[in-house]
Design a protein around this nucleic acid. Structure first.
Lengths: 339, 339
DNA sequence: CGCAATCATGTTACCGTTATCGTGTCCGGC
DNA sequence: GCCGGACACGATAACGGTAACATGATTGCG
């Protein structure tokens, strides 16, 4: 194709000279905007192609004061929850010309501030970020930025602009309800010890609240640090059950450790769900292939991603009261007694 | 803090006026560049903070002709392989001021072209992309872009600029070697039917080549479409074993379906690894908590991510011959007979 | 046939920041 | 007291596009 290696990066001017029209016309052709005759369009396109011109969005963005990016700020990649959310977002953004850009905070508020600062410095068209709890600095930035902000995953709190998610308090309460209805009474909880994982905290709160209404208290709880894995689930389950052997139900703060616990209990020959019930949270695809299907709650991740994307893309208006609450869905699975 | 909601976005000029110095000086303060007295620095910083000013990287990037982004282009998020690679990249980029931006191609070459085009239009400082096989258009873009390009995961081929990865032919061959050494002879393969998954293809090629040297041919093969999941692994395993009941080994193209197969075989009461051996590929963390540890090959994803990042960041020079080949590492697990 | 509307293109003025160079001040040394 | 250099800062001109308006050519229509 083009034989000479252009050491100076190509600009509109190069294409304009190569095709004998003004830079403006080239710009119009490349963006399909405004009237250009079929003939010139063709000339310009071939010129651009043979030169190997790639438009400069930095310059374009500055000139037009518009950038086709949506900042997506989430706490972690490692959970299997993220790809679903992002999947929903991308699917919905696909036909809007908008593009998601992901930032990861590792559940660290200072890091969230930094990531947001960085993202906002690109002047994106919108922000989707996980959670309702943010530093004052972060809130201020977002309020001042003057762009659509959708906080996702959680609706238990006050959104900056608007929120799309589920109530984790409700998810916890509903799981407690199901467990109690199934007749379990000595219930243990296993979860991460992360002060910044507010959603896990709220689930536990809702869970305990409902138990409390029934006059029941958690019989045991076990916390862990760091990421979730099957292995961690095994260890913690062994630990909690050796400490409190007569537990009849274990509620895990996510499916991954729940599945690990399930593996361990099955190996140990526990009667599941007869003598011991298990439940996790999220509804990840992983569970579908396990020897038993873990009882869990579908966190509606794809729906949340889609809806959030629709809002930042302006495909639908922000909700009246600023909140879109999906219903967390109980998935019975095989690890809870059915009535 | 600032009471009036500024509808016009803040610029350096606002900070400059608020602090009584020139925009240039504000810029210097905010970037820690050039000589500024401690007093002015302080004034500027407080002004910026109280206004809630966030720099505009669009304008900055245009002016300085530098953008602190590294484009990372990968085929998929869903495999558990991606977070590891990105983890390695982020870890190594963290202290360089560079930031990864991810694009996903879904194993579609036209989509890869589009994603690259889009990424390059942001004029990033470097590109990391998976695989060595690309459309002519993609290769041309990357060659013309005049920036460091690191192709990762694979080294069986000719890199555009340089490559960091493992040889999948070798990974396949070494697994074949281990299987043969363990005495298995009637071997089946289960993998995705994706013409664009070149690495899976190369592994299979290397695998069959080594079997061929021993005078053995694959006794059966089963392909599937779409993403990998435990469930898919179960189905395919059932199918291949009902078709060819006397297989004594199953080689899976990834750990996820391998684990699914393992689950199914265990439930069916197969004697593993005595009568039937199983192996996957990748070495994902997931395997650590399964009832048996699946035999697999560590694809060195974190190492690859780190090394690629070091190269684009200029922390280390490009390799002489353009290639950094890590050794795929055999992980025996529990699903292959040990000698 | 004349005039306005439409089409196809060009001109000009930014967009918000940084590179570069220039200017004024202060200080020490001889 | 003069000079050179470090220091602290400002003025100006890009950077590569696009919005908005201007222009010339063509067309439609009464």
């Amino acid at each position: 194709m083009n034989m000479k290696r252009p050491r100076r990066p190509l600009t509109l001017r190069d294409v304009s000279e190569a095709s004998g029209v003004s830079e403006m016309t080239v710009s119009r052709v490349l963006r399909n905007r405004g009237d250009v005759s079929a003939a010139t369009r063709e000339k310009v396109l071939t010129a651009a192609r043979t030169l190997g011109y790639v438009p400069n969005k930095i310059a374009g963005g500055l000139a037009s004061q518009r950038v086709n990016l949506v900042a997506v700020v989430i706490p972690s990649l490692s959970n299997m929850v993220f790809p679903d959310v992002l999947g929903g977002i991308s699917a919905e953004l696909d036909d809007t010309g908008l593009q998601p850009v992901v930032g990861v905070t590792n559940y660290s508020p200072p890091r969230e501030d930094a990531v947001l600062y960085d993202m906002l410095s690109w002047r994106p068209s919108g922000v989707i970020l996980a959670g309702l709890e943010h530093n004052k600095a972060a809130r201020a930035m977002l309020e001042n930025a003057g762009l659509p902000v959708v906080e996702i995953m959680d609706v238990d709190g006050t959104p900056i602009d608007c929120a799309v998610g589920i109530s984790h308090k409700r998810a916890g309460a509903e799981m407690a309800e199901e467990i109690l209805n199934a007749g379990y009474r000595r219930i243990g909880f296993i979860g991460t010890h992360m002060p910044e994982d507010h959603r896990a905290r709220k689930r536990l709160a809702g869970f305990e609240a409902r138990l409390g209404e029934a006059g029941i208290a958690l019989a045991a709880r076990e916390f862990y640090q760091g990421g979730s894995s099957l292995l961690k689930g095994r260890e913690l389950t062994e630990r909690i059950l050796s400490r409190e052997p007569d537990l009849d139900f274990l509620y895990y703060s996510n499916d991954m450790i729940g599945a690990g616990g399930l593996m361990w209990c099955m190996e140990q020959g526990y009667d599941i769900p007869g003598k011991l019930g298990l439940a996790g949270f999220n509804g990840v695809e992983l569970l579908d292939g396990l020897p038993m299907r873990l009882t869990t709650t579908d966190a509606r991740r794809i729906d949340i991603g889609r809806r959030a994307a629709r809002i930042v893309a302006g495909k639908e208006p922000k909700p009246e009261d600023g909140v879109v609450a999906f219903a967390p869905t109980f998935l019975p699975g095989d690890t809870i007694r059915s009535r």
